[in-house]
Design a protein around this nucleic acid. Structure first.
Lengths: 150, 150
DNA sequence: GGAAAAAAGAGAAAAATATTCTATAACAAG
DNA sequence: CTTGTTATAGAATATTTTTCTCTTTTTTCC
């Protein structure tokens, strides 16, 4: 991965609908070697996938809730079971195992506070041994990008 | 936006490299009406953009840090200035204004803890009047999807 | 330093895909 | 009904992606 690959990633991170010709031009290559690089980046898994980003508000799901969790149960099996179950909820768009005070944090996307409460009830029903659950509501999404710093 | 549009979004959220023929087949349409729907979704801004998702680990940026912030300065101007400045950092991939104990939360993508510290120093230098800054480190990213629930 | 091998690039041809166009079918309002 | 509107299908055209071949550049090793 050299500087040109990085440049390619930079552009495709921002706009994957860019045609190969345009991309090639931007990175100062002719289409064919540019295409080879793109394909290699895909094969190597550097480019994980191409996706369409959908507008949360326009879909009627303006609310992001950050949910912090503590478990009472610290064995391997529980962890795996939790990861599986929690990941399976479509509302959970991000899920992290954390260091520090809380064991897990997730971002949950819902219509409104009531919908969050429904999710909450579903969550604690599905996953036992949660010792502590705390929700923080995002008032405003100031920045959201999938583009990693290069 | 009817059920078919939703189905289209569902597929494109997962894989935007899907050809129009394949997509059309999946949603039970012929290519041309399917294409019209996709274009309308794009024009209406329901589909915000198409992007390539890059692997954090493969890029050498395995660490996500969640940074919580409190400001001492609660006037309109400060808020705007903060939003601008904080958004401008490439390491900041998500930024929310929060309800509750903390004013802001952001996810910062970096190489390692040392790189986070560098970022931290850059942050407090750039943005004055931060009363409190707290960082939580993600040990593991269990789920990360850009696909909103439909 | 220079020859051989390897890697990266250019340009054109072929294949696949997206886009437009036209005509037909379903649907809703008066 | 029937008129106007919207959605669809299928074919044509245009664009884009992918492959192929040949050339240039870079690297390696003597």
């Amino acid at each position: 991965m050299d500087q040109k690959d990085r440049k390619i990633l930079g552009y495709l991170q921002e706009d994957a609908s860019l045609s190969l010709n345009d991309l090639a031009e931007k990175v100062d290559l002719s289409p064919s070697p540019c295409w080879k690089r793109v394909r290699k980046l895909e094969e190597d898994g550097v480019i994980r996938k191409r996706v369409a980003l959908v507008d949360q508000d326009k879909l009627g799901l303006p609310l992001s809730v950050f949910v912090l969790l503590k478990t009472c149960n610290h064995n391997e099996e529980w962890l795996e079971h939790f990861a599986d179950k929690a990941s399976s909820f479509d509302e959970v768009v991000e899920l992290y195992r954390m260091g520090g005070d809380w064991d897990y944090m997730m971002r949950v996307v819902v219509k409104n506070i009531h919908a969050y409460d429904q999710f909450y009830k579903k969550l604690i029903k599905t996953i036992p041994d949660l010792c502590n659950v705390s929700a923080s509501f995002a008032m405003e999404q100031i920045k959201y990008t999938t583009a990693l710093p290069l």
